[in-house]
Write a protein that binds this DNA or RNA. Structure first.
Length: 1024
RNA sequence: GGGGUUGUAGCUUAGCUUGGUUGGAGCACCCGGCUGAUAACCGGGAGGUCACCGGUUCAAAUCCGGUCAGCCCCA
């Protein structure tokens, strides 16, 4: 009894159409809301979103990170966890926003901003932050990234900043947040210092000029110390020269002048120079020299040679020019020798009026400096160099190292704690833990936290005129100290708040800094929950279970999360962290707006569809670089979705014809069923392990292997079972196995490809329930039969070898052959051999012992050994060995006698070749050999034709959509061998096609087939 | 300069942790095909100095050392 229970589908329906339909289904049935909001009272698995800067557009790399986040959360949800903190997050502060505002207003300097007004400037910043928020939300919806966007944390909110203030006060009270005057990396355009991990993101290869400079020894007319530098502009500020006291130095003469240089550099610096004497660096210490440029007043301790271990032999002359205002090492050594800083450079990076280059940007003055040196006979030589140098990673300006007051978090004091906490984190891939990230922790530097800018979380430190400091840890603290709480904690409102000094009652003003925006995002674990002010949240949920972002966050967000959590709570911020590589363009190049190969997330989805995109991200390990590959995206999607749709279509059309509706999986004794269910459960076991270890790319591979076996072996070998007449138990088992496997494959795949799997799930189960509420499959070990899987692997190998042998001997697959002989090390279950026998298409199939293999064993001489014995008779001997029974004689007697000479087996090579009458293929790995008898006698030929006739009639039955038990009357118009074939195999053809009668006719009705060049006309008519 | 990582067929890759069998796969290329699911499919083939040089071992893609090249990080 037929039915229409299972809907027919269009197997070529595009992924994008399917996705559109499923988004509509999710929306109309409130699927996403239900899953996000339902508390199932299960164990929690917490996630933490890494906040993108909200004012940038989502690109394809974001698609990949969002896909992975979504996959992990779906998998954990289906595996029986409630997902905690399944929300978004937005990073709202910092230079990315300010630069956009500057561009909008046409500003280039801080002065322009301050003249314009910080309030108006920040108002624009606040309003522009969410320029692309709608695009982000649309992209999330399109890719199927399920997060509660209404609960997203936003770093510009007062609550978020208040939590940060709590943290900063705590650090201040613990003397971990301190003010210091140091040489810091500094951007003269942005007018602010940067932290070490910000500097790290801005290194570029660049060309520069370097100079070798002559410092005249005091009291001499022509004796010089030569120093090398890549920053000529710092020469006016020279105060010391530094040598390594353990190195060898030489005094050389070029005829006119004498020079001190590192001994190992003499030959490269001088062509013809006489070494006057050699000494250790320590012998140079104390030497005084004339000031290079007489513009700045220096102290009495300056202008001398001092020792320093940081001096190396690799570059320059072994004599280092020190300008303490512009280098950290220089700064330290100046302190050691009581040398005061002299700094002619203002905060915009321009010289002041103490040097001849007033108001000029220092980097632009290098040519003038070199000109001055030449004019004054102080330049030994100059040369261009290529080196890496730090640039502002936001605006692109070359950084200076510059003396500045700044607030620091003394991170260097907790390096051991950082490393100890890192030990508790699972890194994917693992080598990041002790490699890139571990090294970063080893060298952790004090965090230069404060920024001389406008749009950011204000540093909550107030100062009075007596130099007292107060850290404010909450809005309430402001009132407590005599201030009014502003509605908005940002500048300039917070700047207007005056407090009363608790120590001396003087008026206190806030220090004019905002903080590093990385502190914002690094505080997400607690500040997103308004801790400690939100009494509904405590820190038990820290560390969170899982975070992931791109590889650059190793020195960004992953680092700041780790540091802040260690500082505040003494422990790691996250348990599992996965780092993902970048998506490259089709040519393997990094993508950027400046290169013009930038691909937005929206464009990518429009081109390929969400599920194909998602699967593409799993075609390799997410932490390996991947190039966009249009072909691979399409192929992978078709392999998975096309094949599953086709299997479903087969199932649905047959089940409907039989009136089958799935109830439950009953135990099947059929070997094919048992094999498939074993494969399914093995795959479930492996896939769960893969997903637990964040190897979703390996999970996809395992699932794809199963789909292939399912379609090309199980279904192919099972088809006839679905065409048997009655829906008996045997047939039901087949339907049940097919259904059960299909629906479980969809569940395995659901976290990876959520749209397609929900679409197919509805076809199988109805629209009442989404697949994403289903449990992730668990393996049932009762179904796993490794021996049976191994046996089927052998059987598949036999099929493949049989095809290969036919292919090589030009025997078509449809041609029945007389016999096939198989040799194998392993015994194969005859029942399985019976299963695959239709594929082998042979009258007779049997296993044979080793000795019966139809191989011709021949004996050939080892010429290098035989020739010395037989000389001219060697070729005759080789012909003699072609005689029959030579191999038998050698085996029997252990020797061959020829012309009075006895030859033992070591004179021969034994060759085995298949007998010419057999097509042959073998696989050494499995030990299987297949021999196909090539002889096609007339009977086999006719049998082959009979199969062709049967096939044609079956196709015609299919076209008429006949039930499989329906009888027909068949009329055929044909002559010659094909007619003889029908006459000979009449009964077989009748039985196979349910033809009550087969008549030869001269009628022109029906369909004309071409069978081996012969026209065959067949007409079929249903009869009762 | 230091640290990490990568190098396998034309391209993309599995295998390396735990040494042992002809080194697997997809795509491209060549060849075949409607055997009553599937032709954007199915089937078969060819193609590999496992970057190079040494070492250890009965045996090395796999372990060790050096060199070369790419990428990332520190500076």
């Amino acid at each position: 009894m037929s039915s229409n229970f299972y809907q027919t589908i269009d197997v070529n329906k595009s992924s994008m159409d399917i996705e559109k339909e499923i988004r509509k289904y999710w929306k109309e049935n409130k699927i996403i809301e239900d899953i996000l909001n339902k508390d199932r009272n299960l164990k929690r698995y917490t996630f933490l979103e890494g906040p993108p800067t909200a004012n940038g557009r989502p690109h394809v790399g974001h698609l990949m990170t969002r896909t992975v986040k979504d996959t992990v959360m779906r998998y954990k949800y289906m595996s029986g966890y409630d997902i905690g903190r399944r929300t978004g997050g937005w990073d709202c502060h910092g230079l990315p926003v300010e630069l956009e505002a500057e561009k909008h207003f046409g500003f280039n300097t801080k002065k322009e901003i301050e003249d314009f007004g910080i309030e108006k400037f920040n108002e624009y910043c606040r309003n522009s932050v969410f320029t692309y928020i709608d695009e982000w939300n649309e992209v999330d919806s399109e890719i199927g990234y399920w997060i509660d966007e209404n609960k997203s944390y936003v770093t510009l909110r007062n609550d978020y900043m208040e939590s940060e203030w709590y943290a900063l006060k705590k650090l201040f009270d613990e003397n971990m947040l301190v003010k210091d005057y140091k040489i810091v990396p500094y951007c003269p355009r942005c007018g602010t210092s940067l932290s070490s991990h910000e500097v790290a993101q801005g290194y570029k290869n660049t060309d520069d000029i370097s100079v070798y400079v002559k410092f005249r020894v005091k009291g001499s007319m022509n004796r010089y110390l030569i120093a090398w530098t890549t920053t000529p502009w710092t020469l006016p500020s020279n105060e010391l020269l530094v040598v390594n006291k353990d190195f060898d130095y030489s005094l050389v003469s070029d005829g006119n002048n004498e020079y001190y240089v590192l001994s190992s550099t003499v030959q490269s610096l001088f062509k013809d120079a006489k070494v006057l004497k050699t000494m250790k660096g320590k012998d140079l210490v104390g030497t005084r020299y004339e000031q290079l440029m007489p513009f700045l007043h220096v102290g009495s301790n300056a202008l001398q040679v001092v020792p320093g271990d940081f001096v190396t032999a690799e570059d320059g002359t072994g004599i280092v020019h020190a300008a303490p205002a512009f280098g950290a090492d220089d700064f330290d050594i100046a302190k050691e020798y009581n040398v005061s800083l002299i700094n002619p450079v203002d905060s915009e990076g321009k010289f002041d009026n103490s040097v001849p280059w007033k108001d000029k940007f220092v980097m632009d003055v290098n040519p003038d400096i070199i000109g001055y040196l030449k004019e004054n006979n102080l330049l030994f030589k100059s040369q261009k160099i290529k080196h890496t140098y730090p640039f502002c990673y936001r605006c692109g300006t070359k950084l200076l190292y510059y003396p500045l007051d700044a607030w620091f978090i003394k991170v260097s004091t907790i390096r051991e704690l950082l490393k100890k906490n890192n030990d508790k984190v699972n890194w994917y891939p693992e080598y990041l833990k002790d490699g890139r990230f571990g090294n970063f922790l080893n060298d952790a530097k004090d965090w230069a936290l404060s920024r001389n800018r406008y749009w950011g979380t204000p540093l909550p430190i107030w100062k009075c005129s007596n130099g007292h400091y107060l850290a404010v840890g909450s809005r309430e603290d402001i009132e407590k100290h005599g201030g009014n709480i502003p509605d908005d904690l940002h500048r300039p409102f917070i700047d207007a708040v005056k407090l009363k000094c608790p120590e001396c009652s003087e008026t206190m003003e806030r220090e004019p800094y905002v903080i590093d925006t990385w502190f914002d995002s690094g505080s997400a674990s607690y500040a997103a929950m308004h801790y400690p002010f939100n009494k509904n949240f405590d820190t038990e949920g820290i560390p969170v279970d899982f975070i992931t972002e791109a590889i650059d966050q190793t020195r960004g967000w992953f680092y700041t999360l780790h540091v802040i959590s260690s500082l505040l709570f003494g422990r790691n911020a996250y348990k599992n962290v996965m780092s993902m590589s970048f998506i490259l363009d089709e040519n393997g190049q990094k993508m950027s707006k400046s290169k013009g190969n930038f691909v937005t997330a929206r464009d990518f989805i429009s081109m390929y569809g969400a599920d194909p995109a998602r699967l593409f991200f799993y075609t390799g390990a997410p932490w390996n670089s991947k190039s966009i590959d249009k072909k691979l995206i399409g192929d992978t999607a078709r392999k998975v979705f096309g094949t599953l749709s086709n299997v479903y279509s087969f199932f649905a059309s047959n089940a409907n014809l039989d009136g089958f509706v799935f109830q439950d999986l009953e135990p099947s004794s059929n070997l094919l069923d048992r094999w498939l269910l074993s494969r399914l459960n093995s795959t479930i076991e492996n896939t769960r392990k893969n997903m637990d270890e964040f190897d979703m790319h390996i999970a996809l591979r395992n699932i794809m292997d199963l789909i292939n076996d399912f379609s090309n072996y199980y279904l192919r070998l099972s088809r006839k079972r679905f065409w048997e007449g009655k829906l008996d138990d045997e047939k039901k088992r087949a339907y049940e196995t097919l259904y059960y496997t299909l629906i479980n494959i969809l569940k395995l795949l659901a976290p990876l490809a959520p749209f397609y799997t929900d679409y197919m799930y509805q076809k199988l189960s109805g629209p009442e329930k989404t697949i994403h509420s289903e449990k992730y499959p668990e393996p049932d070990n009762n179904y796993i039969d490794s021996d049976l899987e191994k046996e089927f692997k052998y059987a598949i190998s036999i099929m493949e070898l049989s095809r290969r042998a036919r292919q090589e001997s030009n025997i078509k697959g449809r041609q029945v052959v007389g016999n096939i002989m198989l040799y194998s090390d392993m015994e194969l279950n005859p029942a399985i051999l019976d299963i695959i026998s239709p594929e082998l298409n042979s009258m007779d199939i049997k296993f044979i012992p080793f000795g019966e293999r139809p191989v011709k064993t021949t004996v050939k001489p080892v010429f290098s050994k035989v020739a010395p014995v037989l000389r001219g008779d060697t070729n005759k001997f080789a012909e003699y060995l072609n005689s029959e029974n030579i191999y038998s004689e050698l085996k029997k007697t252990g020797k061959i006698t020829y012309k009075g000479n006895e030859f033992t087996p070591d004179f021969f090579e034994i060759h085995e070749d298949p007998s010419p009458e057999y097509a042959f293929a073998s696989d050494e790995k499995t030990g299987i050999s297949v021999f196909i008898n090539k002889n096609i006698d007339n009977n086999l030929l006719l049998a082959g034709y009979a199969r062709e006739i049967i096939r044609r009639i079956q196709i015609m039955r299919k076209d008429l959509n006949l039930e499989y038990s329906r009888n027909i009357k068949t009329e055929i118009n044909v002559s010659g061998d094909i007619r003889k074939s029908i006459e000979k195999f009449m009964d077989l053809i009748k039985n196979e096609t349910l033809s009550k009668s087969i008549e030869f006719s001269s009628s022109t009705d029906g369909k004309t087939w071409d069978i081996d060049g012969e026209n065959v006309q067949i007409s079929i008519t249903p009869v009762n």
